[in-house]
Amino acid sequence: MEIDVKRIAHLARIDLDPQDENTLATELELILARINKLLEVDVEGVPPTFALGTQMMEPADDVPHESLCRELVMECAPSVHEGYFKVPRESQGV
């Protein structure tokens, strides 16, 4: 199986220049060849482990607690307008 780097980069919303695309495709092919060894393992009937320690988790108390103050959060943003995050228009001319 090959990786269509251009399509996957679009899904991941990452702008790549064509030269980087080629280098990345070569490196990823090598890595994927190694990862394909997983297909040789017999996992019939084995449940997946997606997370660890779930049996030790405690539900949080259902009470509100102090969160970060809005002004502080907004100070971290690249652009704000009247207390909201500001971003460019979805497309030019709209």
Binding site: I3, V5, I8, A9, H10, L11, A12, R13, I14, D15, L16, D20, L24, E27, L28, I31, L32, I35, V87, P88, R89, E90, S91, Q92
Partner: peptide, 30 residues
């Protein structure tokens, strides 16, 4: 940049390094 989509893709493309991009692409693929 001028549009929202470009803001996502260029901010990430310019701000993230090659190893990180490689692993994000691999992760998105799997």
């Amino acid at each position: 940049v001028d549009t929202l989509d470009e803001m996502y893709t260029r901010s990430r493309g310019e701000g993230l390094g090659k190893e990180v991009i490689k692993r994000i692409i691999l992760g998105t693929f799997v």
